[in-house]
Each structure stands twice: as structure tokens, then as C-alpha cells.
Design a protein around this nucleic acid. Structure first.
Lengths: 237, 237
DNA sequence: TCAAAAGTGTTATGATTACACCCATGA
DNA sequence: TCATGGGTGTAATCATAACACTTTTGA
């Protein structure tokens, strides 16, 4: 595997063209905070360096297929939301052609077959969005762009629900928006807005064993493929 | 030049990697209608086939640099708005690796050194957005995506003004929005909204030789680099 | 003086905000 | 009974939509 990587590298740098790789920003919402899955780099002992999940495009793979395979390989789940950000170019260390990274971002549900258990590699870690350091410049740019995109998209579409369990309380939704956007939202107004647009329905279930009034669980009236298309949402936060 | 192109092609297809090219959707607003600059293909005599402006990435060029150079080469102006769409992948005719196209869209002002005169190639033509036919599937996908992006962005940012002359009337702005979004807008409400957000200022000039009340010319209170960042605009059309 | 487009003003409606209050539950 | 978070109601404010109206100009 490592030999193969080196061979590819050699061949590619002989090529009169650009090296391409796919980088994935994988988001997860856990303990009321937004987290990103990062890989710890072994080869640098002085500082802990982190990287986004990435891979090269294999023969016969589509670019989005490569991104999907990265998620399957590292996390073992195939129930996630995935969308391309854009292509990023940056100076190559070895070639006079720019290196190109096609960035993707993924949203993973907390309850999808227990994300924790599927993290198959010991050098992977979920890091809170405000605790990230030691990321290379090129990955920092992609991460920042993905955050900007995520913030925009949860205000216009329903994709934010991809970060919540199948059944959720309205306050969970609100806290998700507050955390991702970094703002405070008025509870009563948020409830009214989200209820009157018919996006969620009461599941007739309630929280259990909580030391306060149990909250109703709701679930989404949309299939995953409808989430980006759905543009009824219009939060002007 | 053509030999060089063939050499590159041969080398690239020997490579165990993806072929990349840059495709540009170039927009212009002329005679109250949105137009796109397309290249007529010579080699097919039966049907007229059209293509987006495109090129491969040259040694030492950044990806956005390649896009800029395409515009300079074909149109001869260097005063335009340019932004990346995303990377598009599609099956290669000659390789088991997908071909990749990085799409860009550009907005050009009508009065920037007379766009017409600078169209340096005889096989280039501005075609109304509703009159386009004979575009390949892969370019059709990029064009459709660019339209979606353009429509979204003119409602949130000030980039639409890149399609207007330096001095414009408020009704010109309104017609631009009506044409691009394909809707009708109420004149009085549109005026109020755009005036009260302090985006434009009265230039103390007026239309001349028009057979109706002369309209005031306004100009924008923003530099080009501020146009995408400026997010005060919030048209919910 | 007419047509055509510029430009103004007014009212009704609906969404958003801010805030106060009540409810259910475990400790 | 208290703390905690769930959940409801209401009045004030602001943005938007609809529409009628006046102004300026060349023909």
C-alpha cells in the first residue's frame, strides 16, 4: 500500500499535469458541540499535526465516489450526507504544476450505528471546531470554507438535520443552530417558525428519565436526497 | 500550438491520473437579456455545436490564473468578476480515470472597453440564455449549475452589478434581476428596498435624449473585491 | 396633448421580536 | 418545594406587497 502510494507519486510528478486529491471535512454534532474528524500524523514527533481525511482518485472511481469511499473506509458507515465544496489549488512542493484538492464535506448522524465504534483507525479523533490546532494551511483553508458553506446551507436548506438523530427535540435543533452559527436564538420564536413550516412531525414519543419536563421527539418529513433541494427554510440569522 | 496540445494530450493519457481542464461560463447583460459567450466548433459540419470557453492548466499557472487567462485571451479585457463553481467529473472517452473540469463563471460589464470589439475570435458568439442549443451534456451541466449559482448569489450579494455599466438607473438594476431570476418585480418596492440599504449613490447625472422622463444615474458604493463579501442584500424572490 | 417611463406615497398584511408566563419532572 | 428545562401566548414593531398616484420628456 505504501509502496503503491510512492509509485503513484513518482509517476504523477513525471506527468505534465496536476496532482489531484480528495479531502473530506467530516462533521458530527456531539455533546452540544460541532466536531470534525481529523487524522493524527505520525511522522512528526515535535508537534501533533492533524490532517483532514483524504485520498487520491483510484482508477474507475468518480470523484464523489472517492469521497464516499473515504467515509466508508474510515468510519464504516454509509448513511451520511456528502457534498462537494469546490476545487482548491496550492503550490506543489515537487512540481511546477499546482497541486489540486477537491474538497467535500460530510454530515454524520450521532445515532447512525454508533459512530464512535466504527472509527476504525486509532489515529482518528473528533475535535471540537474551536479546539482545532496544528492543521496545515491548505487544510485550514478547506475547513474554513466548509464551515462557511455549512453555516450558509443550514439557513437555507434542511441539511442540518443530518447532524441530529432520527428523533430529536425542537430544542436540540435550536442548540444545533446556535452552536453552528455561534448565535443565541429565542426559544419561542424558533419553535413557532420551525413548526409552522411543516418540516417536522410529532413522533408521539417523549424523553425519558430526565430531571425536568420531558420533551417531545419529532422527526423530519424529508428524505435525505430532498434535503438540499428543500429551500423553504429561510433563517435570516 | 496545435502540436503542443497533442503532445500534452498523449502524455496525459499515459498518466495514471485524471485529465483536468478549466471551463468558463462568461455572462453579459445586453439588450435587457442575459447572454453567454460560446465557441462554435468547426469540426462538425452537420449540426452547429457550441462549447464553453476552456483550456488546460499550463505549467506555473494557478487554476484561477488559467481561468483569468482564458478571459484575457478570448475577450481581451481584464476587468471582470470571476468565481469558481466547483469541480465536475465525467467519464473519460480515452481513460479509465474520470475527466475533471473545474468550472468558473465570469460577469462582464457592457461598457468595459466595448466587449464587442474585443471578441478576438470569429467563432465566438454571445447567445441569449434561452436560445442555447447544441451544447454538449458536460457543458450543459456546468452552464445549468452556473445559472443556479448566479441566481442565488445576486439575491445575497452585490455581484449582479458586475453585469451593469459603472453608471446605471435603478430600473436597469430591476430589469437585470427580473431577467436573471425570470420573475416580475414591483417597481416602487424594489426602488425603496435598494435605496434604503445604502448600496448605491446618486451620481448627479441623468439619461439624455430619451423620449420620456430622464432617469437618474446611480453608481455602486462598493469595490469589486467587496461584492461577494457584502451580504446585506437579502432579496427573497 | 399624448404616450411612455420615471418616480412618490399610502395602506394593509404578515413575519419577526421581545418578553412574560405556565407546565412537568426529579431531586 | 425548588431548580431546570419544556412549552404557550401576546403585544409591539418592522418589512413587504399591492396599488394608486404624480412628474418629466420627446414626439
Amino acid at each position: 500500500m505504501e509502496k503503491g502510494d510512492e509509485n503513484r507519486k513518482k509517476k504523477t510528478s513525471q506527468c505534465r499535469t496536476n496532482r489531484i486529491e480528495i479531502d473530506c471535512v467530516v462533521f458530527n454534532f456531539e455533546d452540544e458541540s460541532l466536531k470534525v474528524l481529523l487524522v493524527k500524523q505520525k511522522d512528526n514527533e515535535r508537534n501533533t499535526n492533524w490532517e483532514l481525511l483524504s485520498d487520491t482518485i483510484k482508477e474507475g472511481e468518480t470523484i464523489s465516489g472517492t469521497a464516499q469511499n473515504i467515509l466508508k473506509k474510515y468510519i464504516g458507515v454509509d448513511n451520511f450526507f456528502l457534498e462537494q465544496l469546490k476545487a482548491f489549488g496550492y503550490p506543489s512542493p515537487s512540481s511546477s504544476y499546482e497541486d489540486i484538492s477537491i474538497g467535500y464535506y460530510a454530515l454524520i448522524k450521532r445515532d447512525t450505528g454508533n459512530v464512535e465504534n466504527h472509527v476504525a483507525y486509532s489515529n482518528l479523533e473528533w475535535i471540537g471546531i474551536n479546539e482545532i490546532s496544528g492543521l496545515s494551511d491548505k487544510h485550514k483553508i478547506i475547513l474554513d470554507y466548509s464551515l462557511k458553506e455549512l453555516r450558509q446551507n443550514i439557513c437555507k436548506t434542511a441539511i442540518g438535520f443530518n447532524l441530529l438523530p432520527e428523533k430529536f427535540t425542537l430544542l436540540q435543533v435550536m442548540h444545533l443552530y446556535e452552536e453552528i452559527l455561534g448565535i443565541e436564538i429565542n426559544k419561542s420564536n424558533f419553535r413557532r417558525k420551525i413548526l409552522q413550516m411543516n418540516l417536522v412531525h410529532d413522533s408521539n414519543e417523549k424523553e425519558e428519565a430526565v430531571s425536568h419536563r420531558a420533551a417531545k421527539f419529532y422527526s423530519l418529513n424529508l428524505q435525505q436526497h430532498e434535503m438540499l433541494a428543500h429551500r423553504e427554510l429561510n433563517f435570516n440569522f
